[in-house]
Design a binder for these strands. Structure first.
Lengths: 195, 195
DNA sequence: CCAAGAATAGACCGATTGGTCTAGAGAGGG
DNA sequence: CCCTCTCTAGACCAATCGGTCTATTCTTGG
């Protein structure tokens, strides 16, 4: 019937999706259970730590997947400007395709739960660290000075996170594209491109 | 005894503080009531719309106050670089003074509730629009080309929001300072300053 | 073929949630 | 003085919360 570990995976997927849309406290376990078509016993069998453990793993999962998307986009892009535009486009499409419900899969849970749950905070921290590393590696490949790559990658990560947040609230993705372009200007070290 | 409207104001203050620290769904009305030393009847008398109306007004309040702080800092700073450093310093101190519990008073509630409550979304939207306007005005005063000021102000707002988010998760404010410096570089239109 | 462990299934729990409702205290104008 | 309106006070409600527990159904190795 159900393959080993399938229920566990389905719970994780459902949880990741719901946490991304509704946040940590805004998502009830009963909803996760119903959407996963799993009984409560299975949840606490696979995640003895309860909601907290489920959230930490869900964030880790979506973070790893999105990180792999980033890495792929970085590899395919010829330069920083193009890469940032592509990443911005990815977030913009995710927002628009979900009626502005799905922004960053980490940010909401991070802000909500980081103060009260160390495991969740650590999971979010690890995801952001991995993303930053992807950006830093790519920037080095495009000739950014070694000692500046990490710092720049942080700025890229910050700006994108903020832009996705703003876009979600405004229900308008244009801020993402403009921010991505400004980041390109910054990394190229040239004066901002005229509009 | 209690002056007119005093209870209402106390409820708003308490709510703003708790929502900033714990988010919308993470904060129960009973806690707001207890911290405000107000009975439930008063809450629903002053805020017939319940929790939703309370949150919208609380976000508006803290947003306006922080916006005034921004305006003051902009006015006092001689140039964009200095101003951004000062704003970053303000957020950094808020985080450190609160054991990384108090980041942006809007972002958490915005991400949590924007999708499910239009009044709250609109309130957050208005706060961000006001902040953006403060930055844009200041940038124009520092010689940024008129048609670029609004767009730059958006990038500044995005980057700061993201940096404060990252700093809170990492429990390390350095990303705020570095992002503020990079923003200064961008606006000055010069190559990034060597480390 | 059967015993043992893995996993499912859901009833059940106390606590808490946001919200409603009735009663009465307090103050100000007539 | 007293009536009226504002506001306080908190009991009460159904619904939902995250979590525990026991019973049962699979699956698999011996």
């Amino acid at each position: 019937m159900t393959a080993r570990g399938e229920t566990r995976g389905r719970l994780l997927r459902t949880a990741a999706e719901l946490f991304q849309r509704q946040g940590y406290h805004g998502t009830g376990l009963n909803q996760v259970l119903a959407d996963s078509r799993a009984p409560k016993g299975s949840l606490y069998f696979h995640f003895p730590g309860g909601k907290e453990e489920l959230a930490a793993e869900a964030v880790t999962l979506s973070g790893r997947e999105l990180g792999e998307v980033f890495a792929g986009l970085m590899e395919a892009a010829p330069d920083a400007r193009t890469a940032l535009a592509t990443v911005g486009e990815h977030f913009a499409r995710s927002l628009e395709d979900s009626a502005f419900q799905k922004g960053c899969p980490v940010a909401t849970v991070a802000l909500e739960a980081a103060a009260e749950s160390e495991p969740i905070r650590a999971a979010c921290d690890a995801v952001y660290a991995a993303w930053q590393s992807v950006f830093a590696t790519a920037l080095r490949g495009w000739g950014v000075r070694e000692e500046r790559a990490d710092s720049f990658a942080d700025t890229v990560l910050s700006s994108l996170q903020g832009a996705v947040l703003l876009a979600r609230i405004r229900r308008d993705v244009s801020v993402i594209h403009r921010t991505a372009r400004d980041l390109g200007d910054l990394i190229d070290g040239r004066s901002p491109s005229p509009v």
